[in-house]
Design a protein around this nucleic acid. Sequence first.
DNA 1: ACGAAATGTCAATTATATTTTGCATTTATA
DNA 2: TATAAATGCAAAATATAATTGACATTTCGT
Lengths: 76, 76
Amino acid sequence: MKNLKMKFARMERNLSQIELAKKVGVTRQTIGMIEAGDYNPTLKLCIAICRELGKTLDDLFWEEDRNNEEEKNVYG
Amino acid sequence: MKNLKMKFARMERNLSQIELAKKVGVTRQTIGMIEAGDYNPTLKLCIAICRELGKTLDDLFWEEDRNNEEEKNVYG
DNA sequence: ACGAAATGTCAATTATATTTTGCATTTATA
DNA sequence: TATAAATGCAAAATATAATTGACATTTCGT
């Protein structure tokens, strides 16, 4: 599902996908795909994004209730 | 650096690396390397481990103070 | 001390995250 | 309305997470 929490945190800081991507050392496509969901970033990229946006992992990447999830994969 | 928080959380649940690996759908080597540090798991694997151990991402994978970190990489 | 289970580690392979390039679409602003 | 910036999307290539198999070492109960 879409990661709106990350998208909103980025917009709060007035950063474009391109700017955030540059700050954390990836391409804008990677940022776009994470916000669009259906993507599985690495832990260290998640941490880099959190630190850039002033949030924690739980703030941006943790979902308390997984019953309504839309996607399933090997780790789901 | 070593992820002792994850190791202790696993031991609290009386799970071997082999048992935890089977529960989250990876091999024991993957679990071992995450606990040993110098490794960069995917977000969904981290989430699967958290749910199996009754912890959150911040509990197991977030470090408040990054000044004393030992390792550096592209995302550091 | 002994044996079994658990863990550490390494090389080679496979699966997949991320990049690169390119173009289409949307959004904001003059 | 027009123009540029921002975003969505997709195929092919590259980087790296994860597997597999094998053996060494540690840990722990008997």
